[in-house]
Amino acid sequence: MIEPKNEVPASENHSRLLLDSYRRATGRDLLEPAPVQGKAAATLFRAPFVLLSHGTEADPVLNYGNAAALKLWEMTWDQFTGTPSRLTAEPMERSQREKLLIDAKEKGYSDGYYGIRISSVGRRFEIRNVLLWNVVDEQGIYRGQAAVFSEWTYV
């Protein structure tokens, strides 16, 4: 289901926005060393952690998932980026997820979250130590939210 390794469907601009907004929110770099100009999309897409983001719609739609995210949720890029982000969680997990999103929106970021998610084929997994942050551009305009994590277990 994952895109071929030689193809990077993400844009350089959105990838750079994710990197820069993470640094603004947390004071840390998402990748060390930070990728040089023109290499952010490829580096983030192939990173050894799960990274995803959604936009600002009333019912936010995923607009980014790296290769690890696509593999975990068992979707192609087109499927993933057409999915409302709330559908990545089972219905009973959505209220906890919503509290996390509100907390991060108010504070800039929230970390230490854990919860159960579900892949496109119904495989359940627990995500742990998730850091969620507001994606804000250089002008201070809110562009959505993103999450990163490296720990998950199938349940």
Rank of each mutant, 00 (worst) to 15 (best):
L30N: 06
G38I: 01
V50D: 00
N13M: 12
R23S: 12
S53T: 00
H14G: 01
P33T: 07
H54K: 07
L17H: 13
G55H: 08
A25N: 10
A58P: 12
L30G: 06
S21M: 02
D20A: 12
R23E: 06
R28K: 14
F45M: 07
L51K: 05
Q37H: 11
R23Q: 15
E12V: 11
E12K: 14
L17V: 12
P48T: 02
G65E: 02
V61R: 11
Q37T: 04
R16C: 13
L44C: 05
N13Q: 15
L19S: 10
L31I: 13
G27W: 04
L52I: 10
S15K: 09
A47Y: 12
H14M: 10
L19M: 08
D59C: 03
A42C: 01
T56I: 09
P33D: 03
F45W: 07
G65V: 05
H14Y: 15
P35M: 12
S11R: 05
L51R: 06
P35V: 03
P33A: 07
E57D: 12
E32I: 15
Q37W: 09
G38L: 09
Q37D: 13
A58H: 12
V50I: 14
L51N: 00
E57G: 04
T26Y: 11
S15T: 08
N13H: 10
P33E: 04
K39T: 09
Q37C: 11
L52M: 05
G27T: 06
A41I: 00
T26S: 10
P48V: 09
T43D: 06
F45C: 02
D59V: 09
S21A: 11
A67T: 03
L17F: 00
Q37R: 12
A47G: 00
L31S: 01
Y64A: 01
A40G: 07
A34H: 06
L30H: 00
D59A: 07
R16Q: 11
R24V: 06
P35E: 04
D20R: 15
L52S: 02
P35D: 11
L52N: 08
E57N: 11
T26E: 03
A40I: 04
Y22I: 12
N63I: 10
L18K: 08
S15H: 06
A34Y: 13
A42L: 11
L51T: 02
L19F: 10
G27C: 01
P60Q: 10
F49I: 14
F49G: 06
S15P: 04
S53Y: 05
R16N: 06
R23K: 15
G55F: 00
E57T: 09
L31Q: 03
N63Q: 08
Q37V: 04
S53E: 14
S15M: 05
Y22C: 01
P33Y: 04
G38Q: 08
L17C: 10
H54W: 03
A40S: 15
V61Q: 03
N13K: 14
T56Y: 06
L51Y: 02
Q37A: 13
L62N: 13
D29Y: 08
A34S: 13
G27N: 02
T56D: 09
